[in-house]
């Protein structure tokens, strides 16, 4: 099932359990599932997360500085959680087929 749905569907699906996750955790999971290696793909997936957050489906709950370069050294890391609106849109889009 993985890797054949639109990326934003999958991001919502991952977060539907309501747990908080760091952006690098989501990004690397998607990169692996969709076989999208490289910095360009990494940034493009991260932008999808930013778009979902600006659409009110995810909420940015915590930030920290990437000291060790897990994602992008000395940039900000963001932690996200799904909102009620995101749950509604996400289950609408994703769960129907699961």
């Amino acid at each position: 099932m993985s890797g054949n749905r639109p990326i934003k569907f999958r991001i919502l699906e991952i977060l539907l359990d309501g747990k908080e996750r760091w952006n690098y955790e989501i990004v690397s999971k998607i990169q692996e599932e969709y076989d999208m290696q490289g910095n360009y793909n990494r940034d493009s997936i991260n932008f999808d997360i930013i778009e979902l957050a600006s659409g009110g489906m995810l909420k940015d709950v915590e930030q920290k500085v990437d000291e060790d370069g897990i994602y992008k050294k000395s940039f900000l890391l963001h932690k996200y959680v799904i909102t009620d609106f995101g749950k509604a849109r996400g289950s609408d889009a994703c769960l129907r087929y699961v």
Partner: peptide
Amino acid sequence: VLGKYKELGRTLKEFHPC
């Protein structure tokens, strides 16, 4: 240029929700 043909196909297939 953006390398999004695959995503285009994936999204097109999701007719009902998207």
